[in-house]
């Protein structure tokens, strides 16, 4: 189950610069820690974040082990047409978590 908080304006003017904020629940295990028995805890971080606006990539980022748990990312884009924003977070275990948000452009 994807646990994410997405904050985008529901409605925007054409050509308006909008802010998009996305946070997801993830442990972001660095790979540098050891458990109580001394065994290394394998690295498991989200290493790729991607945002599509009607299937066109508008923003992407690579994450590294220094990122805190539950990463929060904010960026801006220009509202062009009414459509769907798709967010995808890919972690080291290959799990891709997705979330979507709709936007109406007037």
């Amino acid at each position: 189950m994807t646990r994410a908080l997405i904050n985008t304006p529901k409605q925007a003017q054409q050509g308006e610069v909008i802010e998009i904020r996305a946070m997801i629940a993830h442990v972001m295990e660095t790979g540098h820690r050891r458990d109580a028995q001394g065994a290394a805890v394998p690295r498991n971080i989200i290493h790729r974040f991607q945002c599509l606006y009607d299937d066109v990539e508008i923003f992407a980022a690579d994450f590294y082990p220094a990122m805190a748990a539950n990463p929060f990312i904010a960026f801006s884009t220009v509202a062009t047409t009414s459509g769907v924003l798709t967010f995808a977070w890919t972690d080291d275990q290959g799990t891709i978590q997705r979330a979507t948000a709709e936007i109406t452009v007037v």
Partner: peptide, 13 residues
């Protein structure tokens, strides 16, 4: 701000 408070992820769970 509930949209940047990471505790809200747990509230949703």
């Amino acid at each position: 701000d509930d949209m940047s408070n990471p505790g809200m992820l747990f509230i949703a769970e």
